[in-house]
Nucleic acid binder design. Structure first.
Lengths: 254, 254
DNA sequence: GTGTCCGGTTGATCCAGATCAGGGCGGGTC
DNA sequence: GACCCGCCCTGATCTGGATCAACCGGACAC
């Protein structure tokens, strides 16, 4: 979770997102959460097996295509979402349309926690994803019943805050090469290495999104990657996968 | 609390900071917290009057001169600090010495909350200040006894996270003029207007620190302020006080 | 097949803000 | 008083990354 800065937001969204999400139907309600791949992560990790029936009835998984908005900045926060699979981007928009991506969310991350009544950012899938929707009221009830849920929420928010401060350092101080190197290292720490043991990173999002996260234009990102490749620090395997050839060199550049 | 980004950090510091802080002695222990000016703010706001004796024995106020470090990035977090008066700057440092200020803390803000065992940033007074030290263990005990404290902590951390994301937007997207305008507006919202009713902001910190917060050099900050003054948006009353002549113009520039 | 679209890359040029340099001023010490 | 030191301001110049423009190649429609 090092690289996902703004994973935790605020509340929930009311109407189903634009490209109508597929609601699953043919599943045993009580058993659904028990078999959930994100069961031990996110907020649900703070619950015991006895809570699963309640959890199953108060939440609902949604299968989403890519480029589907899940929550919109400023809209009333009526639910929170736990990412079960896929990847989402979280971003804020300036009145004139400039966008800053504050983080990417992957399995286990929680989206839509809000300080006030409105979502703090927009969240949108970058790949086909599955998220689990839980109304804010259900979350509140869970927190009242289980102090551990509140503790988990606090821990997750604190981690997000720390990541956000790292991103502030990156955006305020670092050069383009340093930003990209830091980003690749952070990503490589949370992904598994290739079969031969060398670390690699998977970048399913378009380059323009990586740029919007790092405060760089896609042209600059492209040039920096080429430069790092020329220096022998990385190899570009495909458009969405990079092998880290020399972590120490990246570390030095970050 | 809009402008203070990194007010919440991690745990506590062991030895007293360099310019040895003045520990107060001639006060009734049980009565100290009851008369505290920050009593209703920070974490203490979640406690009832009955908790004051315990609170008074587990915390201790410290009077600090300006430029006094309170917590150091990376050091083991043994205590948290509540700001009672004055102003502190919170910053992170890169190996080569570049510094990024992540926030300024004022009365009511809590410093030193940590995700792991080490402080996430360095905190240092920018004016003479009074802070109240509480060991991390005492905080943990308070949280166990009063779930409301944990709730308060979660609320404060969430506000910090939201502020940090705003700062990410500022650093990633905005121009120098937009950054300074946003900063002045955020400050003016949390300070009281002058006697004649016009809003003003108090800037006790050196210009280089404001620059380090906004990702700008002090020279650039100086030029931007001159530009805003020329446009009639602000007036520089003294070196550390600015009057907002035209909030709408600032809003438009932000 | 052909055409179109979109993401990515590369090159040329531009510019906002950094850097470098000098000077003014207020507060402190002696 | 004279001197020093920190902070701030201003001007001149430099530069990292943005911007503008063109091209390429894969995916998709027809």
């Amino acid at each position: 979770m090092t690289f996902s800065v703004a994973t935790i937001a605020t509340a929930a969204v009311a109407p189903p997102p634009v490209p109508a999400p597929q609601a699953r139907t043919a599943e045993t309600v009580t058993g659904r959460c028990a078999g959930c791949s994100a069961r031990s992560k996110g907020l649900c990790g703070a619950l015991t097996a006895g809570d699963l029936p309640t959890l199953s009835t108060s939440s609902r998984p949604l299968d989403l295509l890519s480029a589907t908005p899940v929550v919109m900045e400023g809209e009333e926060a009526e639910a929170v979402f736990t990412v079960m699979s896929g990847m989402l981007k979280l971003y804020k928009t300036l009145p004139d349309g400039r966008q800053q991506i504050t983080g990417f969310a992957t399995a286990g991350d929680v989206i839509g926690l809000a300080v006030g009544t409105g979502y703090a950012y927009t969240a949108e899938t970058v790949t086909a994803s599955t998220v689990c929707r839980m109304p804010r009221t259900a979350l509140r009830r869970m927190m009242e019943r289980h102090p551990a849920v509140q503790g988990r929420l606090l821990a997750m928010t604190s981690v997000e805050l720390s990541a956000a401060q790292d991103q502030i350092l990156l955006l305020g101080c670092k050069t383009a090469v340093e930003r990209v190197s830091s980003f690749l290292l952070a990503l490589s720490r949370r992904s598994r290495p290739l079969a031969d043991g060398t670390p690699s990173v998977f970048l399913p999002m378009p380059k323009v999104d990586i740029g919007a996260y790092l405060g760089l234009r896609p042209e600059t990102l492209s040039r920096v990657l080429r430069k790092l490749e020329g220096a022998g620090a990385i190899t570009r395997l495909t458009n969405d996968r990079i092998r880290i050839e020399n972590p120490a060199a990246l570390e030095a550049a970050a």
